[in-house]
């Protein structure tokens, strides 16, 4: 697995944790233990997304600051796959 593929997978793992914790916290809004986990992984997700945008391409428009070319539009699309 190359660096780009590895980082994207790690972002996938961390965001999956966030999705799961979000859905749990929606109905358990006072569970401080779960909130601590959420806060921890949300910070990691943000750092990883910034690193991915700097090295490869922006995953969100918030990370798409551009000068020479429109980086958001030039980014590969997720359904292309690794062999796309």
């Amino acid at each position: 697995m190359g660096g780009q593929e590895k980082l994207l997978r790690d972002i996938g793992i961390v965001d999956f944790v966030l999705v799961e914790l979000t859905e749990y916290l929606d109905t358990h809004p006072f569970d401080r233990n779960a909130m601590e986990y959420f806060n921890h992984y949300a910070r990691i997700k943000h750092q990883m997304s910034r690193e991915f945008a700097q090295k490869y391409f922006p995953l969100t428009k918030e990370m798409a600051e551009s000068d020479k070319e429109w980086r958001w539009g030039m980014a590969p699309l997720p359904w292309e796959g690794a062999c796309g």
Binding site: E5, L8, R9, I11, G12, D15, F16, V19, F57, P58, L59, T60, K61, W72, A75, P76, L77, P78, W79, G81, A82, C83
Partner: peptide, 15 residues
């Protein structure tokens, strides 16, 4: 809604 340009889980089908 906001969109992230990645799949929730990677899909790479060769055949």
């Amino acid at each position: 809604w906001n969109y992230e340009k990645r799949l929730q889980f990677p899909v790479n089908i060769k055949e």
